[in-house]
Amino acid sequence: MTSGKSHIIKDWRKRCLQILGTGLAFGVYLFLLAPSLIVTPVSFGSKYELKFPPASYSLDLYRIFFSTEAWTQPLLLSLRVALSTTVIATFIAVPAAYGLVRFNFLGKKFLLALIMSPLVIPSVVFALGIYLYFSTLRLGGTTLGLIVAHTMFVIPYALVIISAGVQKLDPNLEFGAMLMGAGRLRMLMTVVLPQLYPSIAAGALFAFLISFDEVVISWFLAGPNTTTLSVKMFSAIQWEISPVIAAVSTILTAVSLVVCLINVALQKGGEQSS
């Protein structure tokens, strides 16, 4: 009898701990999600006041956003910069990932540290350095300057994702293809690239999102005509708590959600094909 009783008590205690753990975890999930969740209803609220939950719903804020040049210009610039950055960064990161995984060479560790440095160096430090550097090159306040700086900034992320893809490839396939008579270029195009597409797509998506959301470097490099959406938003939050920001935030969150879902889908696809 007694042993049975203690068993029940033990189970009961375990159950309590489980419930406590789950409760705490969902508290944290809520804390993490709250900011992303709050902005959406606010963005469909009134243009006169910021209120949650809004008293009435409308698309006013989006209408204002898309009809104000002070918002649409930065949006277009951000898209342009992010797209260019993505294309350039992908073209650099794919061969770099292959080279760094497949080859050993003198200075590889140094090169890797240098390429990955934007991940470790505080953005402000990196931004200040580029700001000083680009000022002397007269690249400050130009779109080209933004694209170059963003390319360097997003490459580490793209490289990590694409290298992970390269690491999953079987080197025997590449060796086998060359043994069967394929030249190196032909082997890369027919064996390596086709298998890497999911990783490349994920890396490119990541690169796009990071460039699109990037604030600090853009904040330092921005000129009167080169204000990105995130820079515009950063100063808007600081100086005018305009409800339009809620609309911008919702758009940004939607972009993040799409990228996040595509990424999850790509990962699933990758698992299936490997």
Partner: peptide, 20 residues
């Protein structure tokens, strides 16, 4: 000679077939 000029065929333990 580079592998592709040797004219050798190879069968691998892990098959090494192109998955795509």
């Amino acid at each position: 000679a580079p592998p592709r000029q040797r004219g050798i065929g190879m069968v691998f333990q892990n098959y090494a077939l192109m998955p795509h």
